[in-house]
């Protein structure tokens, strides 16, 4: 067992998982109240939005893309939905329009990348600025949009409980499961792996690469919209300034940390869960240890750095096999 864990089979995912387990054990042992059920729920809840967005990002990253618009969609679609409802639109109509906005951004991303062949990094970088600007200009004039009273019927999305478990955790579980099933069991899911592994080969083999790329971004947009609704209903407002925060990096981090390679074709939803759990355990443990919020970020950064360094030492990249342009 030990040999299997320390041998060549020690992937980044396993390293991160081991660190997560080690921290979990250490915290359970040394920290009073860490293992209490309500604390575990708090832990999961604090990272559930991050995890959900991570699943959306993972679908794109596995297909050798990246979606920098995910936070923009997350914030602006939910904000517009609130804004519409504030202006008197019915909740179902507002929900639908909000989703259409999210989908439009996602599909545009896909078209830019698949048909205009703009590299994903720049297509979504440009779209993130464009979509945010458009939404601020034409749809949501305010920085902070509050939840309207009429939205009481959808508060349960982010603020409800089922058998004492916050709905946001359940949504994370649901999205993770759906993402797993999509990638593992559907034809489109398998094609995403094929495209991520070798785009040209997938294309020559007859995979409908362009529609699949568009689909990926549509999926991540959908997931982002859901995450936006969860957050917005949980804090009863949506602050669109989050678009300019470092949240996008946190999402990429949980995805890549768990072992989904940015070069595509590697990893799955399991990796996202592992990455998310590590972040969650870290944050929660440090909070119980009464470490200040700012210092927590420093420690978190250091541990992430250590995690990727260990991975690199255990699985060194070979100059001979390194892929050109794989940054």
């Amino acid at each position: 067992m030990l040999r299997r864990l320390t041998g060549a089979a020690l992937t980044q995912e396993k390293i991160v998982l081991l660190i997560a387990i080690a921290l979990f054990c250490a915290f359970s042992f040394f920290l009073k109240g860490f293992l209490r059920p309500d604390n575990i729920l708090t832990l999961l809840r604090s990272v559930s939005t991050l995890g959900i967005l991570g699943v959306g990002m993972a679908v794109v990253v596995i297909g050798r893309g990246i979606d920098l618009t995910i936070v923009t969609i997350y914030a602006m679609s939910a904000a517009w939905m609130f804004h519409l409802a504030n202006g008197g639109a019915s909740i179902p109509l507002a929900l639908t329009l909000g989703y259409l906005f999210a989908l439009a951004v996602g599909v545009t991303n896909g078209v830019l990348i698949a048909y205009l062949e703009i590299p994903a990094l720049f297509a979504t970088l440009g779209m993130a600025a464009f979509a945010y600007g458009f939404a601020r200009y034409a749809l949501v004039p305010l920085y902070v949009v509050y939840m309207p009273a009429s939205a009481a019927s959808i508060v349960w999305i982010g603020g409800g409980f089922v058998f004492g478990v916050p709905t946001s955790i359940l949504f994370f579980a649901l999205v993770a499961f759906l993402g797993f099933a999509f990638l593992r069991f559907t034809k489109q899911g398998r094609f995403i792996y094929a495209i991520g592994d070798n785009f040209a080969a997938a294309r020559i083999s007859g995979a409908p690469v362009r529609p699949i790329v568009v689909l990926q971004y549509a999926v991540s947009a959908t997931v982002a919209y859901l995450a936006g609704l969860i957050t917005a209903t949980a804090v009863a407002s949506m602050n669109t300034a989050v678009v300019n925060s470092s949240m996008i990096y946190d999402i990429i981090l949980v995805v890549v940390l768990g072992g989904v390679g940015l070069s595509g074709g590697r990893g799955g939803i399991r990796n996202v869960i592992v990455g998310t759990l590590l972040i969650g355990i870290l944050l929660n443990g440090m909070t119980i240890m009464n470490i200040q919020y700012t210092l927590q970020n420093v420690i978190r950064g250091l541990i992430l750095l250590i995690a990727i360094v260990i991975d690199s030492v255990v699985n060194p990249r070979d100059e001979q096999t390194a892929q050109q342009g794989d940054i």
């Binding site: 407002s237 602050n239 300034a241 925060s245 909070t287 919020y293 927590q296």
Partner: peptide
Amino acid sequence: DATKAHSVISTVIQ
């Protein structure tokens, strides 16, 4: 930033 305020205060409450 309300989001940051949320993180800060929930940490403090914990």
